[in-house]
């Protein structure tokens, strides 16, 4: 517990280049121990590339990954032993039976626990005699979760695990992920392109956009610090003038005379000063959903960068 107590995963300047394309750009991820961390980004944002570097499947072009107190590049075996990984698509051979897959894993994963595996098999109601190809998507996802958990890892990393699952299968899957996190002091990182799917299960979020981390923090803090402010300026006021009033405006929308600002680091005082500076007699403050907060931050980035 010397330098970074409390972090399960930490990356410093993590980057990955594919030819000319910088897929992941200087990521400083900080995933607290015990957190359920939602790693959110649109398709192609760099989530899978990042995850593959976290689990040591892909070497970074620059930067480093720390798993608890172990530098991944320095001691990959020790670091990887702490991590369970659920890939975005099942990796088991379709012609194999479930029990053959388990026997195979037992043979290649040193810390594999046959007791834990058979316990999870019963809990997830998976028939060991089934062929992989005959499993439903929901059961396939649970089998992937079992394969990741059977060596009782301290960190569980899931890459878009609920993609393609129906709402009931998704609910069941999340229940098992929550149970895995409640049953032992485990840290979970779960990626998704849909914030709506995973926000309730998470307590921390990181937003990835074009390979860069544009927000990282506690889920509830994001909601209480990001608000929409609706103003009715008495005379027209352009976007540039508004943006000069506050660096925290992440998005501006207009409808008729009304101007709606998305504000980061919200305080009532900041709202009041924007109201008076824009000569708006009234204002209204609205909460916004996480999905909208994410979209507004992304749109705001694009406006600022262009």
């Amino acid at each position: 517990m010397s330098d970074t107590p409390g972090l399960a995963i930490e990356t410093t300047g993590l980057s990955r280049r594919f030819g000319k394309h910088l897929a992941v750009d200087g990521l400083n991820l900080a995933v607290p121990r015990g957190a359920i961390y939602g790693f959110i980004g649109l398709n192609g944002a760099g989530k899978s590339t990042t995850i593959r570097m976290l689990i040591g499947l892909l070497a970074p072009s620059a930067g480093s990954v720390r798993i608890r107190d172990t530098e991944l590049a320095r001691d990959p075996v020790a670091a990887k032993a702490r991590v369970g990984y659920v890939p975005d698509r099942p990796t088991a051979y379709p012609w194999m039976r479930v029990r053959e897959v388990l026997a195979f894993c037992e043979g290649v994963i040193p810390s594999w626990s046959p007791t834990l595996a058979s316990h999870l098999l019963k809990k997830y109601r998976i028939d060991p005699r089934s062929r992989i190809r005959s499993l439903s998507k929901g059961t396939g996802a649970k089998l992937s979760l079992l394969l990741a958990l059977a060596h009782d890892p301290e960190i569980l990393i899931l890459d878009e695990p609920t993609d393609g699952l129906d709402p009931i299968a998704r609910d069941e899957f999340f229940e098992e992920v929550l149970r895995a996190s409640l049953d032992s002091p485990r840290t979970v990182l779960i990626s998704s392109h849909s914030l709506q799917d995973i926000q309730r299960a998470t307590d921390h979020l990181g937003f990835l956009h074009n390979g860069r981390l544009i927000f990282q923090g506690a889920t509830d803090d994001l909601l209480s610090s990001t608000k929409r402010l609706r103003l009715m300026p008495q005379s027209p006021i352009d976007d540039g003038t508004l943006r000069k009033l506050s660096p925290d405006i992440s998005h501006i929308a207009r409808e008729g005379r009304a101007v709606t600002l998305t504000l980061r680091n919200f305080t009532p005082a900041a709202a009041e000063s924007l109201r008076s500076a824009s000569h708006s007699p009234v204002f209204d403050i609205a909460d916004l959903s996480l999905d909208d907060a994410f979209k507004d931050i992304v749109k705001g980035m694009e406006t600022t960068c262009s």
Binding site: I36, D171, L178, L182, R200, A201, T202, D203, T219, D220
Partner: peptide, 17 residues
């Protein structure tokens, strides 16, 4: 907290809070 978390599929820290 545990029962509520599993039932609502909500993060246990959120229920605790």
């Amino acid at each position: 907290v545990r029962a509520q978390s599993l039932k609502l599929k909500i993060n246990p820290n959120t229920i605790q809070r």
